[in-house]
Design a protein around this nucleic acid. Structure first.
Lengths: 215, 215
DNA sequence: GTCTATATGTAGATAGAC
DNA sequence: GTCTATCTACATATAGAC
């Protein structure tokens, strides 16, 4: 409960439906442009034009370029974590965990969301560079590390013989392979001389990472 | 032999030693700054300041920001390819190839070069984002794809039962894991709650990828 | 909340002296 | 080849009308 809500006459009204819709459009546009051009390559003007809004509106809702980026990353992070934790719970309910089922719970929700909604594909590109650029370490730590720790603990429980350092490295390898599949489809197709259906590739990814982690 | 060299009086003399040294300093500085801030985040002025040269000199040797970036990526690409192919030849000379020895020939040279010369670490960061950003697809294709094709063909020969598409995907997964180890040491350490010696990690990486590719 | 107009800084690039 | 001074364009950000 925010301080304003504790009084009879809140100083700030709840945002109108229209304002909320504008805000979503701004974040969708920011997501698309950041995904396409990276943080430095993106401009507020590009985002405004993509959103069909004047430049001032972007600042009004975003509060500056860095804050807007942070909002963009954080917006879907909770939903992604929740989808992963739900998948983990379902996995556990249907029998003992295995390396494959655990990896599957971590990875498949992202692919499922991407298949249903192309905006999640933009988001995947952003996650890829947030995860690898030290500049966004704080954002990555806030948005992704808590869930990563939970899954890493599960891996540790499954493989009590391996050290936490080894499993952490294997987990990072696996995440980077997953992001490669989400973002580098073009390179895989070029090297393979032919495209492959994504569903098979996800199965392949899970098997690949499970075998790697088992090693 | 360039056209100029075919005449008695070449229009352009060979660059002086001093000019060559300046050029190297410019490229080293560009490499460091591009690695640290990405293409759009880097500025010609940052590079000039890092090189200890005036801004005009950067343009003189680089020929514009994009051309300078291209030069920076291409400079070490030939040496890297050669090191990999040499390692492959040595591998082959010392017995029949295996998945592990083949991966080792591809991956270890990069780590060896990085260990000996910190500039190769800057280069690794650049390779990481050139490899994943479609914007630099042409540069990546020119600098890295030829060697990748050679190694992929070797993988195909070792695993005739697998499809080229599957192996291409596995190869891209492996490369992304390698780049993760070269660039995301911080994240691995944070998740692992402790640092690990890099030599062990490279062994681990090779085992991880070999197991994944075998699956 | 929304939009226009503008302030201020800094980017990439180049012309021309040395 | 090297370096200074400068041009032009466009970036972020904001002030203030509606």
């Amino acid at each position: 409960m925010t301080p304003e809500q504790t009084f009879g006459k809140p100083r700030q009204r709840a945002p109108s439906k229209r304002a909320l819709a504008t805000r979503e459009r701004v974040l969708d546009a920011a997501e698309a442009v950041f995904a396409d051009r990276g943080f430095d390559g993106a401009t507020i003007r590009d985002i405004a034009s993509e959103a069909g809004e004047p430049v001032g509106t972007i600042h009004h809702h975003g509060g500056g370029k860095e804050a807007l980026f942070h909002l963009t990353v954080a917006r879907r992070a909770a939903a992604l974590s929740q989808a992963r934790l739900d998948a983990l719970a379902r996995c556990r309910a249907s029998g003992p965990l295995t390396l494959e089922s655990l990896l599957s719970a971590f990875m498949r929700p992202f692919f499922d969301l991407s298949r249903d909604n192309p905006r999640w594909r933009h988001y995947a590109r952003i996650v890829a560079f947030v995860s690898t650029d030290d500049r966004w370490r704080a954002i990555a730590a806030e948005c992704f590390d808590p869930t990563a720790e939970i899954f890493l603990d599960e891996f540790l429980a499954l493989r009590p013989d391996a050290s936490r350092q080894q499993l952490a490295a294997g987990f990072v390898f696996s995440v980077s392979a997953m992001l490669a599949l989400l973002t580098s489809q073009g390179r895989i197709t070029a090297l393979g001389h032919a495209p492959a259906p994504e569903a098979d590739q996800v199965d392949h990814l899970v098997r690949y990472c499970a075998a790697g982690l088992a090693a």
